[in-house]
Design a protein around this nucleic acid. Structure first.
Lengths: 120, 120
DNA sequence: ACTCAAAGTCTGTAAAACAGATGTTGATAT
DNA sequence: ATATCAACATCTGTTTTACAGACTTTGAGT
């Protein structure tokens, strides 16, 4: 299983990139901001592979961005820490940039409502 | 070779994550902001595999974040577009969050100057 | 023409991702 | 209490991706 060895790069961008430069990490945190807490909830909302979710949740715990509510055992809730919530301004910037610079041409905006579920 | 099929997800975070949720993409753009322009320059500064750099440069071109100065041929310069420069506030937020929440304990800040080159 | 180096490409190997089946453990109902 | 169900994973086999390092091509300079 993939583990998270935190980067010691002197550049903060380099350190952040090690953690945030991963599509699933970004999407899991997004779902966390939107209220997701449970394993199966992330599975369904993101259509992520179970092993991939397990490894990313472990990484996020090691990095201190989430806590597992019963630290071990079943029926776990994965909760965002303050450290994760501090990412909200970053997500706001990301959404702003994306809305302004990714796909402004309307041709791309057609056919979105087709399937009900989220997709990456 | 890995190509870039832009995401049509309705959520701007989902679209951004498809492009920015990649460690090398984040680091290549960082080096671009810091003045890197040439293929070999990125190779040396990031210690990235040549094939990996080739594929990421292609993705960044397809996404419109960089242009290749002679569109084909040798001695190319890879230049950031306005679209890429618009990411600066996002990088600022990332650096801010990273500095505040990744490795604030000083134990981690020791031993940085050991090897001269950048490391991810 | 010769050399050098920049910008890739190729090859073989190691790591990671994935779908889908299986296992394990708590909660709930009977 | 025990049978059942669902949540939280783990395991297996396969496909995909990453990587180091050698090789190739092409333009520039001499």
């Amino acid at each position: 299983m993939k583990t998270y060895q935190p980067s010691r790069a002197p550049c903060p961008i380099g350190r952040a990139a090690r953690l945030l430069g991963d599509r699933w990490i970004l999407l899991i945190l997004r779902e966390g901001f939107l209220g997701a807490e449970r394993f199966e909830e992330f599975i369904q909302r993101l259509s992520i592979n179970r092993a991939a979710l397990t490894s990313r949740l472990a990484i996020l715990q090691e990095a201190g961005l989430i806590t597992r509510d019963p630290p071990s055992g079943k029926r776990a809730r994965y909760l965002l820490t303050d450290q994760a919530c501090a990412l909200v301004p970053l997500y706001a910037e990301m959404a702003k940039w994306s809305a302004e610079h990714l796909f402004d041409d309307d041709e791309m905006t057609a056919g979105w409502a087709a399937s009900g579920s989220h997709q990456s």
